[in-house]
Design a protein around this nucleic acid. Structure first.
Lengths: 340, 340
DNA sequence: CCGCGGATGTCAATCGTTGTAAGAATCCAC
DNA sequence: GTGGATTCTTACAACGATTGACATCCGCGG
C-alpha cells in the first residue's frame, strides 16, 4: 500500500540507494539523476518511513516536552511555542502530561518512548534533581525547565525568578503599598518555584525597609485559581488585611481577583495584584493583570536549540544555564485605568 | 547501550523468541518461564524499540490529534483529555498545531508523519470535506471533530450544535430577554460552527415568536477574546443595544464581558451573556459564565475508541457519527448571584 | 513402549532505510 | 590510449523486533 523507496527507484530507473542519496542530499549526484528521482518521488507522493529511518539512523527527530498539565494556560502556551519552535527546525515535539504524578514523571524519565525520542525537555514537579539524575537510564539528553537549582548537573532554562519576584514586589512598593502579601510560597515542590520567588519577594521588602510578616505568606496546595481564591479569602480574614498581593503565578492571581470582586473590594484601589507568567487570560481580565512576562517564544526556541545541540554533539561539554528574558507588564490590577 | 531483546533473552536464559512470546502474550508459556523473563526485563529495564516494532508490525500505537491552536483553552483542555484517554488505552497522542493554515492541514493530511501514526483525529478549520477526501493519500483512518456535516464520508464526532444553540438561546428567552444578539456567526469556516449555531439560535427565536434582527448577528473575524470584545462594542453602538448575547464560544463571551465591564454595564442585569465550550476561565470569571458544556472527557474517550476500532478492523464498516453529550451550565452571567 | 500435545528452541525472513565498500563510468593529462 | 583520479551508482549488510515453519524435549495416558 504505502510507496517505498524501492518503488521510487523502480519508477526512476535507478537503484534504491541513489534515491536515498537524493533524499539525504548526498553531494555527488548529477542534476539529471536528481531530477529524475525527484519527479518519481513527486509522482508517487513518496514519504520516507519514519520508523525505518529512525531504526537505522538511531535518530528520530522527535523530542519530548514533559509538562505537568497541558490544560493549564501557561503550559498550553509553552507547548504551542515549543511546537512552533520545533517545526521551524524540522523536528517534532511529543507533549507528555505528567499531571504531577511521580509515576508519570518516572516513566517518562526512564522509559522514554522506547528510544523513539532523541531528547527531553522536562518541567519537573515532583522529581528532585537527585531523583532525575538517578533515573536517567536512557542516557538521552535532558534540558530542565523551571526554577530548580540543580547545581550544574543538567542543562537548565529558567527565568531569574528571584530578580523577577524582586521587581514585582518593588513595583508594588513603588505604588505606596506597605502591607504586601505573597501567595504561592509553598508551590513547585521542594526547592521549587515557591521558595525561589519568596526569596525575591523578601529581598524587595527588606530593601525597602519593610518588615516581612509571616502571616502574609500563603502557601496553599497548588497553583490554580481555586488556591488563589482560597488564599485571598484567608488574607481578607486577617485583622489587618494586605493592601497588595504578589501571586506567584497568574492563575493564583486570577483566583485572588475573583475573591476580591466577590468581597466587593476594588482593585487596585483597595488591593493591588501582581501575577507571574503573563497568560492570555490575565491580559483580558477585568481588571487586566499586572504580571511578570517571560518571553515564551525565546524560551521555547532557545531550549530547543540547546537540546538539539546536545543531541548532535555527543561530547560532554559543560552544562549550561539559560536565563529567560522577561518584562514587568504593568496593567490595571496595579495601575488602575492608566494600565489599559 | 540500549538493551535489546537478545540481552533480555541471554539474561533470562531463554531464546529471543520466548521473550517475544512473553511480551506479546503468546498463550502457551509456563508461569515459571514467564516469571524469569519478566524478572530479566525488569532487571535490565528493557523497553522494546518502538521504531523496530512499528516497522515490523505496521502499527505504532501512535495517533495524531490535529487542532488549530493548542494555546486556545478549549483545545488545550481537549488535548489534555485526549492525552489521558489515549494513555488509558496504552497508546500515545501526537498533538499537531495547524494554526489554521491550509498548508499545515494539508501536510498533516497527506504526509502524516511518514506512516508513523496509525490514525488521525482532525479538527479542521480551513479544509473542506471535499478537500479532505481528496487529500487522504495515506489511507489512514480519520475521525473528524466539529460541526461539519460531511455527509457520511468520514467518521465524525460533534456536539449537536443546533440543539445546544437552541437551548442556550431559549435559556436567555426564558429570562425575559427579547433582544438577543449572536456573536460568531461567521466563524469556523464555510459550513462550520458559526453557521450551525446560528441555525439553532434562529430556531429558538422563531419558536418564541421573536423577530430575528440581522443587526444583532455579528460575524467578526475569529473566535478570540478580541473578536468578542470588538463585536460587543459594535453592539453597544446600536441605537437599540441587545439585552442578551449568545457568544458561539467562551473566548468570545469573555471578550464581550470585558467590553461590558469597561462600559460600566452590569451583567446580567443590563446584558446577559452565554458562551459555548465551558473552558475553565469562564468558570472562575467574575461574573462566572453561563455556557454550553460539552463533556470533553466523553468526547476524547469515545473518539479514541472509535478511531482504534477503525484501526483494528480493516473492514469498511459504515461511517459513524457520535453526538457528544452536553449540559447548559447556568452561572452568574445569566442568573446573577443565584448562579454561584 | 508409543504417541501426543504442551512448552521452548532454531533458523530465517521481513519491515524500509541507510552506511560501507566496492564497482562502473567518466574525465584529464601525459 | 593508458594510468589514475574523480564522480556517480550499485550490491549488500545492517538496525531491532516479530513471525512462521519446524525441530526438540518433556511428561503423561493408553
Amino acid at each position: 500500500m504505502a510507496t517505498r523507496l524501492s518503488d521510487v527507484a523502480a519508477r526512476a530507473g535507478v537503484s534504491v540507494k541513489t534515491v536515498s542519496n537524493v533524499i539525504n542530499d548526498y553531494p555527488h549526484i548529477t542534476a539529471h539523476t536528481r531530477a529524475k528521482v525527484e519527479a518519481a518521488i513527486a509522482d508517487l507522493d513518496y514519504r520516507p518511513n519514519v520508523s525505518a529511518r529512525s531504526l537505522r539512523k538511531g535518530r528520530s527527530d522527535f523530542i519530548a516536552l514533559a509538562i505537568p498539565e497541558m490544560a493549564s494556560p501557561y503550559f498550553a502556551e509553552l507547548g504551542a511555542a515549543f511546537s512552533r519552535a520545533a517545526k521551524r527546525r524540522g523536528i517534532t515535539v511529543l507533549i507528555e502530561q505528567t499531571e504531577g504524578e511521580p509515576a508519570a514523571e518516572q516513566m517518562i524519565l526512564d522509559g522514554m518512548r522506547g528510544q523513539l525520542i532523541d531528547g527531553i525537555v522536562f518541567s519537573p514537579i515532583t522529581s528532585s534533581p537527585a531523583k532525575i539524575s538517578a533515573a536517567v537510564g536512557s542516557g538521552k539528553p535532558i534540558v530542565l525547565l523551571g526554577e530548580r537549582t540543580t547545581g550544574g548537573t543538567f542543562d537548565h532554562v529558567a527565568v531569574d525568578s528571584v530578580q523577577a519576584a524582586y521587581d514585582a514586589t518593588t513595583h508594588l512598593i513603588s505604588l505606596g503599598r506597605r502591607r504586601i502579601a505573597a501567595i504561592g510560597v509553598g508551590g513547585g515542590g521542594a526547592s521549587g518555584t515557591g521558595a525561589v520567588r519568596r526569596r525575591g519577594y523578601r529581598k524587595a521588602l527588606k530593601a525597602a525597609g519593610l518588615p516581612h510578616d509571616p502571616e502574609l505568606e500563603l502557601a496553599g496546595t497548588g497553583y490554580h485559581r481555586l488556591d488563589g481564591a482560597a488564599s485571598m479569602r484567608a488574607l481578607l480574614e486577617l485583622p489587618e488585611p494586605p493592601d497588595a498581593v504578589f501571586c506567584f503565578n497568574d492563575l493564583l492571581a486570577l483566583g485572588a481577583l475573583r475573591t476580591l470582586a466577590d468581597a466587593g473590594l476594588s482593585v487596585p484601589d483597595d488591593v493591588a495584584v501582581v501575577g507571574f507568567d503573563d497568560i492570555e487570560d490575565g491580559r483580558y481580565h477585568s481588571p487586566s493583570l499586572t504580571t511578570i512576562s517571560p518571553d515564551k517564544e525565546w524560551l521555547a526556541d532557545q531550549t530547543v536549540a540547546l537540546l538539539l545541540e546536545r543531541i548532535a554533539g555527543s561530547g560532554e561539554a559543560a552544562r549550561r544555564n539559560l536565563t529567560v528574558p522577561y518584562t514587568l507588564e504593568i496593567r490595571e490590577s496595579t495601575a488602575g485605568l492608566e494600565g489599559r
